[in-house]
Design a protein around this nucleic acid. Sequence first.
DNA 1: ATGACTGCAAAATATTTGCATATTC
DNA 2: GAATATGCAAATATTTTGCAGTCAT
Lengths: 136, 136
Amino acid sequence: MISSKELLISKGVKPTLQRMKIYKYLHGKKTHPTADEIYKVLVKEMPTMSKTTVYNTLNMLAKKGLISVVTITGTEVRFDGEMYSHHHFLCEKCGKVIDIVLECPVCREKEIFGHKIKETHGYFKGICGACRSGND
Amino acid sequence: MISSKELLISKGVKPTLQRMKIYKYLHGKKTHPTADEIYKVLVKEMPTMSKTTVYNTLNMLAKKGLISVVTITGTEVRFDGEMYSHHHFLCEKCGKVIDIVLECPVCREKEIFGHKIKETHGYFKGICGACRSGND
DNA sequence: ATGACTGCAAAATATTTGCATATTC
DNA sequence: GAATATGCAAATATTTTGCAGTCAT
């Protein structure tokens, strides 16, 4: 079991305190927070944390392949600390983004119609189970 | 062959001049413009066209199922006038959003893990054929 | 001391809202 | 003339940028 710190180092990322806090906050979390949500939580325990650093770090971690970007809502970018292949479901009622783990042949493609594929994202939109049964 | 006007009426949308212009601009177009791009084009031939109306109309048409929302970039919402099922490819180099028509078993699902699915979106990101071969 | 990182403030971008005017049935 | 639609301006939300200060090697 490799530590978060070693993981960052192995990808060539200098493990500063801010970066560790941000990465650890995302990793293993089932929610898919925005940069602003992450900032608001972390600034409480680290008052000097700035939003710029949160954005810088998230974009850098995404580029390094350590976290992934979820653009399901369109008006804001959400982040996911889990890198195994999975889809996302957005509930139109409660706004939650839920992980959907399934086999998807289309996601295995690395090239299509001459275009080189680096990332694949599958998004579903609808009403989640909890909202359907009235258990928010 | 049903006209755009009749199509809007059949979905309960009053076919005002502004709405017709916006719908016609999107429908049959292969690009996936933002609200701002649509506004900039249409305001030239119709100087009173306002951005508010463009946003209102696009959101309303999307809700009525006449156009679809493409959230592949995350920082802005794009719109697609074609409603047949297809995926999208975003080129990281030139920024183009390209339609990808393929068979996808996952897209046929109407419910998953108890969640009611209303929409499915498949997004690919990478380098498009033109950028790979240097023909921008 | 050099280069990398952080953080504040301001700018840029995208979208929504309040409200007054105009249009339609 | 009531309801609906439009349009301007202002507000809000999200993300990026410029730059000065800090930290680590």
